[in-house]
Amino acid sequence: MLEYQLLSPEEEIEETFPYRRVWRALALEMGLLLLIVGVIYVLIQAGVLANQYTPTLSLVVAVLPIGLFYAVSVRRELQAIQPRSQLSVILLLSIIAANGVAWPFIHLVITPDHWLPEAGFFSRIIGYTLTLGIVGEITKYLVVRYTIWPQQIRMRLDGIAYSVPAALGYALIMNVQYILNEDPLLTSAIFRVVINVYLHIAAGAVMGYFLAELAINPNGPFYWFPMGLSLSAFLGSLYFVFRRVSISSGLGSRPLGGILLSIAFAILILGILSFIIENAEERAAARQGVRRIR
């Protein structure tokens, strides 16, 4: 008598994604920063914290994005099968370049507060792009370009992953200098921290994408990097142009207007970048006839 044995279907072994997931970590960091700043704002509104110049707490909030970056991104990177390296080097170099070159150049040579805020709408767009925007983006670009590029770029998301510490280092210096030089109230300081961090992450991510794309396809046109620099500088400047509109409200002002604008701005830019990168990776995989590991 024949005996039949039921065979279980062959189990398809799912490959594990070997890299840290950039978007999740970035969303978590940005969300946590917003949450903590929101709690501080509520405490100020409730009268628990005084809304006055508080350098210690303001500086703690300024350093917070870097703490979150280490707690989320770097920690997860260490757990990944193929971790990205030199994130701390990029962060450190960005801090040094921003503090040693970019900030003195902005503060002593460009002096934007003397001439840009009163300029007309289009003059502000052009003025901010050609000064603050390009100084910020060339600093971040140089740090990433001459450290890990192109040897550490294995996929397009690596460009975003490496652009984040460059942006955080740059934003840290802008925030610390603002707190130490302008003596802002606590609400102004914590709002400025969020705005600068969101803004530089979004604009830096654009440059990161351009860097990654040329590393993966090195046959790109000669204007690829210049285009990336100009576009990221332009996008970074758009926030400053619309800031007045978002903050002013008749004869009064909306303190939350600027922060809401920066959140919307970052979500929009990062969302578009996510779509472009996903699309490009999908098409590259289809062209090579390989299955993408998700």
């Binding site: 460009i110 001439w115 792009t129 000064t131 090195p218 210049p226 620099l229």
Partner: peptide, 30 residues
């Protein structure tokens, strides 16, 4: 590829310097 990367790297610096020069000119005029 190496030629393209070289050109991109050079033009990136040239673009940044050019944009900054225009920005400073605009500042001076304003």
């Amino acid at each position: 590829p190496s030629r393209s990367i070289e050109l991109n790297s050079i033009f990136a610096i040239v673009t940044a310097v050019g944009m900054l020069a225009l920005g400073l000119l605009m500042r001076s005029n304003t």
